[in-house]
């Protein structure tokens, strides 16, 4: 039995705002890693059917050490504003970190429109 660990992302409804780049919007979320068995998280932006949408961020797979939080800024094109629905973070487990049955966690916030 392993100690409880958590994956947490706030806020539930991030707001898309104009960025400093023309025709590009940005949104921000904060990821908190309280899972000792996961230190990498993958960021994705999805439409309402969970299909990928192009976006930019500093790191798509980012290292979030145990008990640390990271602020994540994502940038999407103005033309994708209506399609973009979810901003998700998913834990990435290394094979040697998985016991017999590992648990992958994914949290999706929804853009406020």
């Amino acid at each position: 039995m392993s100690p409880a660990g958590a994956h947490e992302m706030t806020p539930t409804y991030p707001e898309l705002k104009w960025s400093h780049i023309t025709n590009v919007l940005t949104a921000q979320v904060v990821l908190l890693n309280m899972r000792s068995d996961a230190e990498y998280y993958e960021i994705t932006v999805l439409d309402e059917d969970m299909n990928n949408i192009e976006f930019a961020t500093s790191e798509r797979i980012l290292n979030v050490p145990y008990l640390e939080r990271k602020t994540i800024d994502v940038y999407i094109r103005k033309s994708d504003k209506d399609k973009a629905t979810y901003l998700c973070s998913r834990s990435r487990l290394r094979p040697n970190q998985v016991q017999s049955t590992g648990i992958q966690s994914r949290i999706c916030s929804k853009f406020r429109k």
Partner: peptide
């Protein structure tokens, strides 16, 4: 206290 969801891996499974 913010609106949020947290997923806790409470117990790891074993086959």
């Amino acid at each position: 206290v913010m609106s949020k969801c947290s997923i806790y891996t409470d117990t790891a499974g074993v086959y």
